[in-house]
Design a protein around this nucleic acid. Structure first.
Lengths: 147, 147
DNA sequence: AGTGTTACTATCAAATTGAAACGAACGATA
DNA sequence: TATCGTTCGTTTCAATTTGATAGTAACACT
């Protein structure tokens, strides 16, 4: 895919797709939200080839979803932490997970609970203005005027 | 990536990633939600090579997000319609779009409005039980017992 | 008869991926 | 001191995927 075209596309989905449209990046972000920070933790969790992991971590860092932090000077060691943009990606992961639970839900699945009151989390997307679930009301799409 | 491993992974995100983790598929689903149904409509909208489009449409059809319907017998012509699973993917697209609007929002962007009352849609993910935004409360993850 | 439309397939070069081995910098152990 | 283990990668190279271009099949229209 041509990233230059995508970055100027007026569709916000297309803008995100440059890295969201990649299985490894999504799984790395999932693991980062689960608390993993180090190269070998990701590698072992995902069974990913180190070449791939190096590239994906570099891309996610360049794109501003992760940041490298040195946690040891001798030897030099880095860890990867979520940035604000990376943390704000969590809703996307939850909605992907909710879809997978509904349509790919055979067998045992990991479950997520609200740590404070113990109820299982059921993620839904709503319009903050109307409160209606996304997809339950008709949508009007407005293209930007040519600049 | 190895799809066999992924399909038995207990993480619902990993289950979805087999096709959600692909830029073209996400953009095809976006266009399908915008009302496109035919091969050439997708091809022109996306600028995708026909080989790619054929494969992606076939995968999305096999995975149950689209279905082929014959709309002409002579000549035989098919169109691609969203299934229930495909329609239920809309919240994922909206959350991806919401992230892109916030973090990749330079220049003109397409905007989405509630067709009934005219307000702009602001998609957020919430826990249906507590009503809290996803990410604002601590989460406890529970792995399934070994079967 | 010739042109246009729609939905592809065929071919092939280029880019990406993934597996396996290797390396550098250290710390711990014998 | 020698060796092992850990961490975070790089190097190499074969296999797969990709994307660009061209071609095809079945018709409809003029």
């Amino acid at each position: 895919m041509d990233n230059e075209i995508i970055c100027n596309d007026p569709c916000p989905i297309a803008r995100s797709v440059a890295f969201a449209g990649d299985a490894w990046s999504l799984l790395i972000l999932r693991d980062a939200h689960a608390g993993l920070t180090r190269f070998d933790q990701f590698r072992k969790s995902l069974g990913i080839a180190p070449t791939m992991l190096t590239r994906r971590l570099a891309t996610l860092t360049e794109e501003g979803l992760l940041e490298k932090r040195r946690y040891s000077e001798h030897p030099p060691r880095e860890e990867y932490l979520l940035t604000a943009a990376g943390r704000d990606f969590l809703p996307v992961l939850f909605m992907i997970g909710a879809w997978g639970r509904q349509y790919r839900g055979g067998g045992k699945l990991v479950r997520f609970f609200d740590a404070e009151n113990g109820t299982e989390i059921k993620a839904i997307a709503v319009d903050e203005v109307t409160g209606a679930k996304i997809g339950t009301r008709p949508i009007r799409t407005v293209m930007p005027e040519e600049s």
